[in-house]
Design a protein around this nucleic acid. Structure first.
Lengths: 173, 173
DNA sequence: TTTTTTGGTGTTATACTGTAACAGTATGGA
DNA sequence: TCCATACTGTTACAGTATAACACCAAAAAA
């Protein structure tokens, strides 16, 4: 990723803007570490390493992609290895599943419980998570009227990120 | 489904309330028919029948469930049969994919282009589609700031519908 | 009319995604 | 020490989805 410094927290889709990705990783990892010890949950090596792998980029990674990496790095090679780590990380709110892609991204705002909203590039699969509360009051009202109890929700928007849009404009490849 | 009459269009999650499901089916099917001939698209027997099957209930149906039904009813038996029909129906906006379930539901508002919002019961898989515009202005703004062009978006809320909530309250089964 | 193109169907084969179930290991109480 | 719990390793399998090719019919072009 790009190395331009941007200290301000904008609350916007930072992933798709130039930012210091090293900072990005450190911030999230530290926060996860802190939360895990606070909650007395077992942040074991596989689990930690799975999170580190997902943090390497803002693109969503499929479970079997993660598995391949875990295997290369000396952890197990069978599907449950990856799925168990992912289940743990999702339970802790450290990782989200991007349903549209059947793939996973590290949560960029692990300190807040939230309804995630994703901007998903259909071309490069990069995923920007926003920390906007995307649940309109109207949906809650609908749910109440239907006697439906919302437990968790998510919003996914698919489209083209800036870089991929540029490519499509100038198809000189 | 239940047979209580309810002529009013409420704009709410009708699927999870008592309603005349026959009316429901007829309304959607007629509208699809109309739109298909208007748009000069080929509403072939498999495609029509796939929509009819999905309309039978408000529960989301997996692709292989649809395939089984199509096979029983004399259409092909191989996966592409179902997936092609589904692709067509989704392109036309007659069907939505509920990503959380890897399953499909007939669109209850095929006359409007919209960003669908689903209330998904984690217990019985019933899906209520609302016609609320769930895209908060904030997300659009985020997208603009990130240079991201939203092409389609969707909101999914998982929880418990009224009936399943009752069952969990009184676990006397 | 003949030819070509287009769009839809039928089929095979295969890739990707996810989970059940059981065995083994380590750790921390009772 | 015994037991319970939680995590890991592995096999086997179930469910989801698509690529690719052959076939056919109807529409469009020659």
């Amino acid at each position: 990723m790009v190395a331009t410094r941007q200290t301000e927290r904008t609350g916007a889709a930072e992933a798709m803007r130039p930012h210091d990705h090293g900072d990005c990783i450190r911030r999230v990892l530290d926060e996860a570490e802190r939360r895990a010890s606070e909650d007395r949950v077992n942040f074991t090596p596989v689990r930690r390493h799975a999170l580190e792998i997902l943090l390497e980029s803002h693109a969503a990674m499929p479970a079997y992609g993660l598995l391949k990496r875990l295997d290369e790095d000396g952890f197990g090679s069978q599907p449950p290895v990856a799925y168990r780590a992912l289940d743990f990380l999702m339970e802790q709110g450290f990782v989200h599943k991007v349903e549209r892609l059947n793939a996973f991204v590290a949560c960029m705002y692990p300190h807040e419980t939230h309804t995630p909203a994703f901007l998903i590039c259909r071309n490069c699969r990069s995923v920007a998570e926003t920390c906007v509360a995307p649940t309109p009051a109207a949906l809650r009202q609908e749910a109440r009227a239907a006697g439906f109890a919302i437990e968790r929700s998510m919003m996914e928007a698919e489209g083209l990120c800036r870089d991929c849009a540029r490519e499509e404009d100038a198809p000189c490849d």
